[in-house]
């Protein structure tokens, strides 16, 4: 076989990779750019000097810091709740035998097909009767558990050999003890996948906070940015600073845990 010193695939991949990465690079550069560089003609890609005016403006002219804190709270509660509730339910459906197990699991599988748009109106009515509209709880309650999470954890527990649990039971462990001390430590890969799935969904959600929250001090960062854009549509350094603040945590998480992100995408793609 003839071996080229340079694979022709680079001719496809290099421009594509740049096309995907450059807008994000420009986002970061613009956030640090003086307005003069952005509004001149033709526009500059590389700033003449770097400055923090975009970030200072963002944090003084909007409640972005508050929005970010709200989002951290919503995402943290969502991730913690899903880790506990979905792994427990997944274990129950995979290993325990009880009345209504099959019916319960089938019901959960059926909900996977229901689109969220269908649920928005009745959920809004339900939440407003419960007094949840315009509270942070409105943003995180829909994320406390998910059919995807239960399904993911159940599939994982089914793949574990049962002998370990039986051994622990002989040693006198209760069902919860077996789950907590023996099974859960083995479930780290699945728990990582579930964390990524919940983090992505709850951090990036826009339509539901848009519907359920109108008090500006309770906005999530996504909602805050989307509304901020409507009023400050020419202050690009401010908007790009907001984008950096809203995106950077997930990009850092992605770079640190690329394998878990890929596993999440693959699981929802091949088995979901």
């Amino acid at each position: 076989m003839r071996r080229l010193p340079f694979s022709p695939w680079h001719l496809l991949l290099m421009p594509l990779a740049l096309l995907f990465a450059l807008p994000l690079v420009q986002m970061v550069l613009t956030a640090f750019m003086p307005d003069g560089d952005i509004n001149r003609f033709p526009p500059r890609f590389i700033p003449t000097r770097l400055q923090l005016d975009g970030f200072i403006g963002l944090f003084t002219q909007s409640q972005a810091l508050r929005w970010l804190a709200n989002t951290v709270v919503v995402a943290a509660i969502a991730v913690l709740a899903q880790l506990v509730l979905c792994s427990m339910a997944g274990y129950g459906f995979a290993r325990l035998k009880f009345f209504g197990r099959t019916a319960g699991f089938l019901m959960i599988l059926a909900t996977i097909m229901i689109p969220t748009q269908l649920l928005m109106i009745p959920t809004y009515v339900m939440f407003s009767r419960l007094g949840l509209i315009d509270t942070l709880a409105a943003a995180f309650v829909p994320w406390l558990a998910s059919a995807f999470g239960i399904f993911l954890m159940r599939q994982f527990f089914l793949s574990l050999p049962a002998e370990l649990e039986d051994a622990a039971r002989i040693d006198g462990c209760s069902t919860f003890g077996v789950f907590w001390r023996v099974v859960l430590p083995l479930a780290r890969p699945a728990l990582a996948t579930l964390t990524v799935f919940t983090l992505l969904g709850s951090w990036n959600d826009l339509i539901w906070p848009l519907v359920a929250i109108s008090d500006e001090s309770l906005y999530t960062i996504q909602l805050g940015l989307a509304n901020f854009q409507g009023t400050r549509h020419t202050q690009w350094s401010l908007l790009m600073a907001g984008n950096v603040v809203a995106t950077l945590p997930l990009i850092i998480a992605f770079v640190l845990a690329q394998r878990q992100f890929v596993a999440t995408m693959t699981f929802s793609g091949l088995k979901g």
Partner: peptide
Amino acid sequence: FIPFVASAAATGIL
């Protein structure tokens, strides 16, 4: 892959 983790809000504004 990275654009996939950016939110629709951030993507739209960008």
